[in-house]
Computed example of a mutant assay.
Amino acid sequence: MLTKSSNITRGIVYVFIRYCSNKQRSQHAQDLEKTRNRKKPPGGSRHLNDKSLTYLFNAWDNVQWDEEQEKAAKQKVELNSQITFTEDSLKDLDLNADKHWDTFYDIHQNRFFKDRHWLFTEFPELAPDNTSAPLRVYPSDNESVMTEKPELTNPCLTHMEQDINVKRYIFEIGCGVGNTIFPILQYSRDPNLFIYGCDFSSKAIEIMKENELYDTNRCSVFVLDATKEEWDVPFDKNSLDIIVLIFVLSAIDPTKMKTVITNIYKYLKPSGLVVFRDYGRYDLAQLRFKKGRCISDNFYARGDRTKVYFFTQEEVSHLFKETGFLEEQNLVDRRLQVNRGKMLTMYRVWIQGKYRKPS
């Protein structure tokens, strides 16, 4: 039974809690304002060595997971993989895959994905004449990291210096509405550079061609189903310097990935390079899936019926090496993204690689 005295006490405690909470919010707002315009340290990476500093920045690089976090992620994936699609639903996903992507781009146009200005920090080979992007630094004591020396990453630059008339060809698979191609054209003024791009979605290609940045003297894009055994493309085999494969292989059925890599190998020049970046196992996007969205192990369908796979380093390495590629880089990029306003932390996991066709 509550008494008048206990009610007064409860009221005092409640007021005190509100006072403390408001004071914490005020202090947090002050901290946000103080750090709002802080820049990354030299070298392009920001490492979280003290967890009490988590909310000082919007993102932290190369964040290592402990065993407990890895175990929790694995359990979450096992839980959301218990219920899979029916056979009829799987048929729809395969037969109407292009329509699902057309619908996606019809809704979002060119507003969904941001231009990838980070490309030149991760892959300076794409615009060797661009010197404004800092070089990413990965921890040397991480056994999962293999990266080549910067001076060895770009043999194409040497060719450009030797003969200014040598043409350089880049081909992006899954170009979407140009979020990779347009930044490359913007940052590289190399007159001998020409970029090809393809996408499964005819709507995406249509939107890209309507963009004022689309310059037919410097680029050409077309519709292509990259999972086909034979490609119908406007260039010859053994003709491309670089093939870009960024967040696209994950949208392909794992049983068809080898076909894609095999064709990539055919069209690259000897010594040509593949730059790869895609979703890694236990990425936030995988952990967010609910039951009933799983197609097969680590392969899901989103609510808009587009598909996504989550890789391990070993899987990526095997895909390229069994086709004959030499591995120059294969690393896990673990990023901690922070919503400082809502005090939320989000762990992203990406696999990044560079694979070269032997000369």
Rank of each mutant, 00 (worst) to 15 (best):
T9M: 12
V13A: 12
Y14M: 06
V15H: 07
F16S: 12
K23D: 04
T35M: 12
R36V: 14
R36Q: 15
P42K: 13
G43N: 11
S45Y: 03
K51M: 08
S52G: 10
T54Q: 06
Y55K: 06
L56N: 09
D61C: 03
Q64K: 11
Q69N: 03
Q75A: 14
Q82R: 14
L93V: 05
Q109R: 11
N110G: 06
F112E: 09
F112G: 00
F112Y: 15
K114E: 15
D115N: 14
D115M: 06
E125P: 00
L126N: 06
V137Q: 15
S140P: 02
M146Q: 11
T147K: 14
T147R: 12
Q162K: 14
K167G: 07
I170T: 05
F171S: 07
S188K: 08
R189G: 14
D190F: 05
D190P: 03
N192M: 15
N192S: 14
F194Q: 10
S201N: 08
M208Q: 13
E212S: 12
L213H: 10
D215Q: 02
N217L: 07
R218T: 02
V221E: 08
V221S: 12
A226G: 01
T227D: 05
F235R: 13
K237D: 08
N238C: 11
S239H: 11
I252H: 06
P254N: 09
P254G: 04
T259F: 08
T259Q: 13
N263M: 03
K266R: 13
Y267Q: 02
S271Y: 06
R277K: 15
A285I: 07
K291F: 00
G292H: 08
N298L: 10
R305Y: 11
R305Q: 13
E314C: 01
H318Q: 13
K321S: 08
E327H: 01
E328K: 04
E328G: 12
Q329V: 06
R335W: 07
L336V: 02
Q337V: 11
R340M: 03
R340K: 09
G341H: 10
Y347V: 08
V349S: 14
I351C: 05
I351L: 10
K354L: 10
